[in-house]
């Protein structure tokens, strides 16, 4: 979830370069970059500046505000955090303004807006490895999956964020070797397989890969909205 108090708000007089300077690094930390089609990027961002002037924020040019502030927040560009699994499956955001870091040619992704089918597995970028300090844990939400992402040395593991004891938030806990300790009552999970010392209380784990510095978690895709 994006912390709205920390979110950059743009004002009248904002330029294309202002948008690029803010959105580029933001997207990169989420595993995305601007489309390689630079004319298309300028066209989309120019539309966003028109929308900023008309509607007060840089809403997605391909989607419409419904008037529900909570819903409308989810289409403020870059909206990647709200659609991580869907976008990873189509390798771009709805518009194609942003494409996955690992896509070389963004031209072939332009045009189609397709919702990926539910039930397919997809590798979703969730963090840059360099943003995860060794022996630390952080929470990531991917669709309906609430995940604790733990780095142990140079390895990264993903497991359910919800402790099976009293539903404590494991991502606020502590990494101790290959174990993650719940901050509430100290229940201990092996990050490699989600097992715990307590019977029938293992947590779900997710496959993790690291490619070119991006950390991917494999999830099964849910409904788009």
């Amino acid at each position: 979830m994006v912390d709205s108090s920390a979110r950059r708000v743009f004002h009248a007089g904002t330029t294309l370069d202002d948008l690029k300077a803010y959105m580029g690094p933001f997207a990169e930390r989420l595993g995305y970059k601007f489309n390689t089609e630079t004319d298309f990027v300028d066209e989309v961002l120019t539309s966003e500046l028109e929308i900023l002037e008309r509607d007060g924020d840089v809403y997605c040019p391909c989607r419409i505000r419904t008037g529900d502030p909570k819903e409308d927040l989810k289409i403020v560009c870059p909206c990647i955090p709200f659609y991580r699994d869907q976008f990873a499956a189509i390798r771009k955001c709805w518009c194609g303004l942003f494409i996955l870091n690992e896509v070389d040619d963004g031209a072939e992704l332009l045009g189609v807006i397709e919702e990926p089918g539910a039930g397919t597995a997809v590798d979703v970028p969730v963090a840059r490895l360099e943003d995860l300090p060794p022996d630390s844990v952080r929470r990531v939400k991917v669709g309906k999956n609430d995940i604790a992402l733990a780095r142990v040395g140079d390895e990264v593991f993903a497991l359910s964020n919800i402790c099976r004891h009293a539903f404590g938030p494991l991502a606020e806990g502590f990494v101790d070797g290959y174990h993650l300790l719940c901050p509430w009552h100290g229940w201990r999970y092996d990050v490699r397989d989600g097992t715990t010392d307590h019977p029938n209380a293992d947590v779900k784990t997710y496959p993790v890969t690291v490619r070119e510095g991006d950390v991917f978690v494999s999830v099964t895709i849910g409904r788009a909205r």
Partner: peptide, 24 residues
């Protein structure tokens, strides 16, 4: 639009009972 396309992404083209979202 939600009813025919299942979402609020544009464009939505409706022709001959078929629905196309995006410029496909």
């Amino acid at each position: 639009v939600k009813q025919v396309s299942g979402g609020t992404s544009f464009p939505v083209l409706v022709a001959d009972g078929e629905v196309v979202v995006g410029f496909n």
